[in-house]
Amino acid sequence: MSLLNLKNLTMRFGGLTAVDAVTETIEPLLLMGLIGPNGAGKTTVFNMITGVYLPTEGQISFDGQNLVGQKPHEIAGTGIARTFQNIRLFPSLSVFDNVRVGFNNALSIGILGSILQPRSFWRGEKEIAEKIDHLLEMFGLLDQRNELAKNLSYGDQRRVEIVRAMATDPKLLLLDEPAAGMNPTEKQKLMSLIRYLRDEFQIAILLIEHDMHVVMGICERITVLDHGAKIASGTPEEVKNNPEVVKAYLGHSE
């Protein structure tokens, strides 16, 4: 059974059709790329999946459940986590606390437990702290643990966002341009990290990325959007040689 099903997904902003009847499926454990020229509608697809936008038309089902109309936090609860194209960390919180917010639902102890803080409260906090440190270490962020998120470098902020998303224990991870603003070394590391995440945590990853080296290097399947419509889908080789795709990118030559 496929993990995520998009059917005829459409988003209109006034007269502009940002996403035009996109149908797509994502299988569990797949590493999939979503590419297309600027303004193609990629981020809008993410925003509809995660409930930030309500689709104008179409269906989204995840793990057999309908997602359309659910609130973003409910959708997160079903096992979808994401990062944002223009990083959205909690700037006034430390790196550690940014990630810890991702564990909020796993740690629910109720308001009385939070005020009175019995032994079980501290046990829960301690377990989570160990998990967070483990994740931070995995991403090489342990040294920045107590740093405020807003003081980190761009690349580090991007990685903290991924760690925070992983804290929710997702089945599907949506990454919106994770390599943006990274240098070639960082990009190389990011690629192996993304592969490692999929293998280690047994999740599916849907990745928006403009850097073709990154996309072609790690994605097993790629879907291409242009002007909101899906114009191609297949293996990296197939997509690379698809004349429609070549045309779309040349037409938008930058």
Partner: peptide, 27 residues
């Protein structure tokens, strides 16, 4: 005590960025 618990983190996350907070399951 609240501020040292999931509640406090929920408050601060809501203040800092509601969309980001919702994206990690914070109601």
């Amino acid at each position: 005590n609240l501020m040292r618990s999931t509640y406090g983190r929920g408050f601060l996350a809501t203040r800092d960025d509601e969309i980001a907070a919702e994206s990690v399951g914070v109601n």
